[in-house]
Amino acid sequence: MLKVKTPKYGRVKRELEKREPKLVELAKKTLILQGTKTSNVLNTVLSEIYHLKRDNAIRYTRKNDSIRPFESGGETSLEFFSLKTDCSIFVYGSTSKKRPDNLVIGRTYDHHIYDLIEVGVENFKRMDSFTYDKKLAPQAGSKPFIVFSGEAFESVDELKHLKEVLLELLRGEVVDNLNLAGLGRVYVCTAISSNRVFLTHCAMRLKKSGTIVPRIELVEIGPSMDFVVRRHRLPNESLKKEAMKTAKDKLHKKIKNVSKDALQGKLGKIYVPDQKVGEMALPNKAKGVKRERREAKMKNSNNERASKKQKEDS
């Protein structure tokens, strides 16, 4: 016999409701964790990524010996952590002789691995090593600009994938309204070669330019690093198709009275109510008539109307 089980406390219920699938989803949370062995560089990378995404990330600091995202069976505990923390992006750091300073960035769909990309970190420069005017330091949680440049991001498969994953990782929350005064930081990603990407974090300095659009200057505030792409795994087609469904696809409302024509483009049909031209009062203010006469006419008409009213009353 089945038993209906509901949470005992309202707080638990609310937490569960937060996690249920929604038509329009909130920002994805990020889980940052590491394997059994990490290097000094990698520890700093992970903690600085966590620092940058502080408002929407969870950092696990213990060693995890059973996580190997690319191997079958090695993703079990990762998927469990994803379920437990309700995170759908993860950043996993590990280092080995074969793959030094290894960073695996991946996404999950329905708490199962969706895609994975593995990058090596090189030429890492930590935040502390940059010196700049502290007034420029961006506010935590402000929406960053993300900039990609390089033809390799379109031509090379791995970089194309990396671009999508980095965008998802760095973009923060999708917002409707944006405060222009709060803009202050930029992630710059440049493809240097077919498997190397330079990523840096900059502050923005808005300068007057005489127009409403200010002139921008970038000041590097770190961290900055090179990503060398190693392995990657794309989602399979059916899963991708399912994951790409949006609420809009489903709630596609039929628009009335609008049709599309190959020749004329978008056509609309407008309902115009009966204008009752016959009943409309004519503006009896011809300019050619002399002023006195015009005034006299106005007076007369006023009198007429008044008399009519009186008649009605009586």
Binding site: E20, P21, K22, L23, E25, K28, S88, R107, T108, Y109, D110, Y114, E164, L167, E168, P235, K240, E242, A243, M244, K245, T246, A247, K250
Partner: peptide, 8 residues
């Protein structure tokens, strides 16, 4: 970008 959970 992909969703994180299936549509309700």
């Amino acid at each position: 970008l992909p969703r994180e959970k299936p549509l309700p």
